[in-house]
């Protein structure tokens, strides 16, 4: 593992006053994509980078990967400059779209990226098998990627980002183009990776993804970070209280309402909770799968590839807050117990 000041402090990504101005052929400034960003992502965090289209998210990510050269400012990834290819051994990257060689099959694609990591053949074959199984493409592994649907290509992209068992995973729109079931499974996967101590930088404009997954969030607009903090800090409303119970009869509701008003509550609203569409969709599809209906597309994703090791870090930063607000579809995710688990497992 890379040993450096930042890394020793458990900071995997650090940007100080990072700027990027795109210039044209005559070196005239054209677009100020990023204007002075400061970021600090600690080891084991799932960090959400939010913002509308064109807010500079992807540009920032590409500077972190050394694909673009910053105009000014400092970037450190795993304690080193992104120009240093040695760090890339520990970085996984899923771009905002799957830029794959159309003529390679799914297996050949993963094998190619495995070779770039100089993985020996045996390790490579094992990992490719596991990853194809994990993203549910093992049945179509010999078909050229060019024939795949967008969601299937996305799965290939996700699989290749994990082939090196990365410490830092940079995911740009991981769930775009995927059906809700797959998206849910990808989210579970990310959460699981986070539990294993991987650092995840999640860049998206799917707000629900962020809400479900992220420990910390930065919201960008116009090349600047407008808000940054834990989900808890940003989302908790201090001016309201919600009480959930099992279904009550009308008379009991009326009784409770009057009691609340008596005790000084100013507005009381009673509502029958709705399920989220995502939860409903997932339930229907799971049921159909359980009944054994066939599909010719990608199969269900399964488990997490077992070569993705738990990262053992001396100073894993305790998560500041439970990441997800448990909804009736999502798994309850108690971070503190997970953290304990991961520490004791060591």
């Amino acid at each position: 593992m890379v040993i450096h000041m930042d890394a020793a402090e458990g900071i995997d990504v650090k940007c100080v006053d990072l700027r990027k101005t795109f210039r044209d052929f005559w070196m005239r400034p054209r677009v100020r994509a990023v204007e002075g960003i400061d970021l600090e992502i600690r080891r084991g965090q799932i960090y959400g980078l939010l913002g509308p289209n064109g807010s500079g998210k992807s540009t920032t990510i590409k500077m972190l990967l050394g694909l673009l050269t910053p105009s000014s400012g400092r970037v450190a990834v795993l304690g080193k400059s992104p120009r240093d290819v040695a760090i890339k051994k520990h970085v996984g990257y899923l771009p905002e779209e799957s830029y794959l060689y159309r003529f390679l099959s799914a297996r050949e694609t993963l094998d190619y990226y495995g070779r770039l990591f100089k993985l020996p053949r045996k390790v490579r074959n094992e990992r490719v098998d596991r990853l194809l199984e994990m993203v549910g493409l093992d049945a179509v592994e010999h078909r050229p990627v060019g024939e795949f649907s967008k969601g299937m290509q996305r799965r290939v992209g996700l699989a290749q980002s994990l082939i090196n068992d990365p410490q830092l995973l940079i995911l740009d729109e991981p769930t775009s183009g995927m059906d809700p079931v797959a998206a849910r499974q990808i989210k579970d996967l990310i959460m699981d990776l986070g539990r294993r101590g991987k650092t995840v930088l999640l860049c998206t404009h799917q707000l629900s993804d962020v809400e479900d997954l992220c420990d910390r969030v930065a919201i960008m607009f116009g090349g600047k970070v407008r808000a940054e903090g834990t989900c808890e800090d940003l989302l908790t409303r201090t001016d309201q209280t919600t009480i959930q119970t099992s279904a009550l009869s009308d008379s009991v509701i009326a009784e409770v309402c009057s009691l609340l008003k008596e005790r000084g509550a100013q507005t009381v609203e009673v509502d029958q909770p709705r399920r989220r569409m995502e939860a409903l969709f997932v339930e229907i599809v799971e049921k159909a799968r359980a009944e054994g209906l066939q599909t010719s597309g990608a199969a269900a994703t399964s488990g997490v590839a077992d070569f993705l090791k738990d990262t053992v870090v001396a100073d894993v930063v305790p998560r500041s807050a439970p990441a997800a607000t448990p909804t009736d579809g999502g798994p309850a995710h108690d971070v503190d117990t997970d953290l304990l688990e991961s520490l004791t497992r060591r």
Partner: peptide, 14 residues
């Protein structure tokens, strides 16, 4: 032009 190079050069390849 198709950004495939991003995937390749995000790997440990000079």
């Amino acid at each position: 032009e198709s950004f495939r190079i991003h995937m390749t050069l995000a790997k440990p390849l000079q």
